[in-house]
C-alpha cells in the first residue's frame, strides 16, 4: 500500500480517468493520493472509503458532511462541508458526522410567541460569551453569533430570518465556548416566528374550504369522468396566467374555475 503511494508521488502520475494531477491528503493522519480536482467527499471515495455516516445530499444542503482540517504551516483550524470543499495538497482532515447537542423537547402547540419560551427551554443561551467562533465555523455564512444575540434580546423575527440558511451541520456547536446547541435554538426560533409572529396567510382558510366545497367536488367529478379526448380539449383551451401578470390578475375565463 505505502509503496504504491510513494511511487506515484515521485512522478506525479496522471490518474486513470483524465489527465489530472494527484496530490497527497491526510485522512485522519493517513496519507492518500487523490486527484486535485475532487471534493473531500469524492477524494475519500476515490481513496476507497465507503461512507455510511458523513454523506447525505452530496449537494451542500443537508449538513451531513461537516469536516475540519488544517493546512501545513497554518495554525488556523478550518471547517467546511466535505461535499463542497476541494482538496488541497497536504491537508489534514477528519469528518465530524455527529456532534452531541442537547435538544429540548416541547409541545409546540402550547408555546406562545414570547422569547421567554426559548429562555425556558434553552437557558444556556445566556452562556454565550460572544466569541464569534460559531460564526467563523459556519459553512453557510450564517451570522450565528448575531442570531444568538437576537434571541437574547428577544428578537425572534431577527433570529429566524438571520438563521434561515442553517443546514444544522453542527459545526457551530463543536466550536462553542459556551456549549450552546445553536442550531436547535435557531430551529425553535424559526418555528415560533413562522407560525406565531409572521403574518398568517389568511387566504388559506378559504382555499381549504373551496377545495372541499360542493362546487369543486362536482366539477372534479365531471373531469374524472371525461375521456382523454375531452380532457385534452379542455386542457389545451385552458387560460394560462401570463408570467408578467401582477398579483391582482384574474382570469377572463371564469368557468375554468
Amino acid at each position: 500500500m505505502a509503496d504504491r503511494e510513494r511511487k506515484v508521488t515521485d512522478k506525479e502520475k496522471t490518474a486513470g480517468t483524465g489527465k489530472v494531477k494527484l496530490i497527497p491528503v491526510y485522512v485522519m493522519g493517513k496519507r492518500y493520493l487523490v486527484p486535485e480536482t475532487l471534493t473531500i467527499m469524492k477524494a475519500l471515495e476515490y481513496a476507497g472509503y465507503r461512507f455510511i455516516r458523513g454523506c447525505g445530499c452530496r449537494g451542500g444542503i443537508c449538513g451531513a458532511c461537516a469536516t475540519v482540517y488544517r493546512k501545513p504551516g497554518d495554525y488556523h483550524i478550518r471547517v467546511g462541508l466535505a461535499c463542497q470543499t476541494v482538496v488541497e495538497p497536504d491537508m489534514y482532515l477528519t469528518q465530524i458526522p455527529f456532534y452531541p447537542a442537547n435538544r429540548a423537547s416541547y409541545d409546540f402547540a402550547q408555546l406562545s410567541d414570547s422569547p421567554e419560551e426559548i429562555f425556558k427551554l434553552y437557558p444556556e443561551v445566556f452562556r454565550c460569551i460572544a466569541c464569534n467562533s460559531c460564526t467563523k465555523a459556519c459553512p453557510m455564512d450564517v451570522q450565528v453569533m448575531d442570531v444568538i444575540s437576537a434571541v437574547k434580546q428577544g428578537n425572534i423575527e431577527r433570529a429566524a430570518t438571520l438563521s434561515f440558511s442553517c443546514i444544522q451541520c453542527g459545526l457551530c456547536v463543536s466550536r462553542c465556548m459556551g456549549e450552546l446547541p445553536q442550531y436547535h435554538i435557531m430551529q425553535l426560533a424559526r418555528r415560533i416566528y413562522g407560525s406565531r409572529i409572521a403574518p398568517r396567510a389568511e387566504h388559506l382558510n378559504e382555499a381549504v374550504e373551496a377545495a372541499k366545497g360542493e362546487k369543486c367536488q362536482q366539477a372534479l367529478e365531471k373531469l374524472m369522468k371525461s375521456d382523454i379526448k375531452q380532457l385534452r380539449e379542455i386542457y389545451q383551451s385552458r387560460e394560462i396566467e401570463p408570467e408578467m401578470a401582477g398579483e391582482d390578475w384574474t382570469p377572463a375565463k371564469r368557468d375554468d374555475l
Binding site: 409546540f108 429566524a160 434561515f164 424559526r190 418555528r191 403574518p199 396567510a201 377545495a211 369543486c216
Partner: peptide
C-alpha cells in the same frame, strides 16, 4: 392530491414553515 393541497399549506404554516409572503401574509 389537489383537494388536500391547500390544507397541507395551512398545516405547514401552523408548524412554523416560513413561506415567502407579502407583508399582509398572502403567499
Amino acid at each position: 392530491l389537489v383537494t388536500q393541497a391547500p390544507e397541507i399549506l395551512r398545516w405547514l404554516e401552523g408548524l412554523g414553515v416560513m413561506f415567502d409572503k407579502f407583508p399582509d401574509g398572502r403567499l
